[in-house]
């Protein structure tokens, strides 16, 4: 079943077209990745899916329902959550308070709190050790884990991950990708945006390449890893 359909999406910043006629789909249970250079429009696409940017043309459907004009705060209870670029954790709140914010829109958040926290702490044991720490004082890697854990607290059907490996040491990047795999195995559909193209393609069922606001290639992750022109452009030649 198709969970998310994006159809001819155009988003502008003033008169600048950030993305143009972007069309793709995310099947339920899949990991789909959107790769592309800096400024290609990846973040704009994810922000638009979360309702933070106005759509100039095109449509977004989630579980068959048109949500193109739905306000951001109503999309979370519907099942879309996001770990945004730059983490955007709440710096003046503790780790626990940040995680609680993730469950803000759930009516049954009090009842399910301990089970939800348990799930996040199993994926990110580091967060449990730091539960009382002020989030703004944590390292970049810990903040990334917190942003992802926070996004899971709403029990999303679809989680949008914007460059979760940005600025992290290689060992941490491995860890983050293995956790992304765990999240998929728990049954959450993932739309992953990355500049770290090789890793993203390896884990993805389906991949789209974005170039200056337009989708220029698509295929399975394996297809694109094997493609010479893709390797030359995005994977830094031989990998």
């Amino acid at each position: 079943m198709t969970l998310l359909e994006v159809d001819g999406l155009c988003v502008n910043y003033g008169r600048i077209e950030a993305i143009r006629d972007v069309t793709f789909a995310v099947e339920e249970g899949a990991v789909v990745t959107l790769i592309g250079a800096n400024g290609a429009g990846k973040t704009t696409t994810l922000k638009t899916l979360s309702g933070l940017r106005k759509v100039r043309a095109g449509a977004v459907r989630f579980q068959g329902k048109d949500i193109t004009a739905m306000p951001a705060h109503l999309r979370v209870p519907l099942g879309i959550s996001q770990s945004p670029e730059g983490r955007r954790i709440f710096p003046g709140m503790s780790v626990l308070e940040n995680l609680d914010m993730g469950a803000f829109s759930r009516a049954d958040r009090v009842k399910t709190r301990s089970a939800d926290l348990e799930r996040v702490f199993t994926l990110f044991p580091r967060l449990e050790e730091r539960r009382e720490q002020l989030a703004g004082t944590m390292s970049g890697g810990e903040q990334q884990m917190l942003a992802m854990g926070r996004a899971l607290m709403s029990r999303p059907k679809l989680i949008l991950l914007d460059e979760p490996s940005m600025g992290l040491a290689p060992k941490l990047i491995q860890q983050i990708f293995s956790i992304i795999n765990d999240i998929r195995e728990q049954g959450t559909t993932i739309l992953l945006v990355e500049q770290n193209a090789m890793q993203a393609l390896r884990i993805a069922d389906r991949a789209y390449i974005l170039e200056t606001g337009e989708i220029v290639r698509e295929g399975t992750g394996d297809d694109l890893v094997a493609d010479d022109s893709v390797r030359a452009a995005y994977l830094g030649g031989d990998v």
Partner: peptide, 24 residues
């Protein structure tokens, strides 16, 4: 309180708050 946490979240990062489902 729930509303109080919403106020703090919007004050710290209103876009991130929207991603949590906070109605600004």
């Amino acid at each position: 309180t729930h509303t109080g946490r919403g106020i703090r979240a919007v004050a710290q990062d209103s876009e991130a708050a929207a991603l949590m489902g906070v109605n600004r």
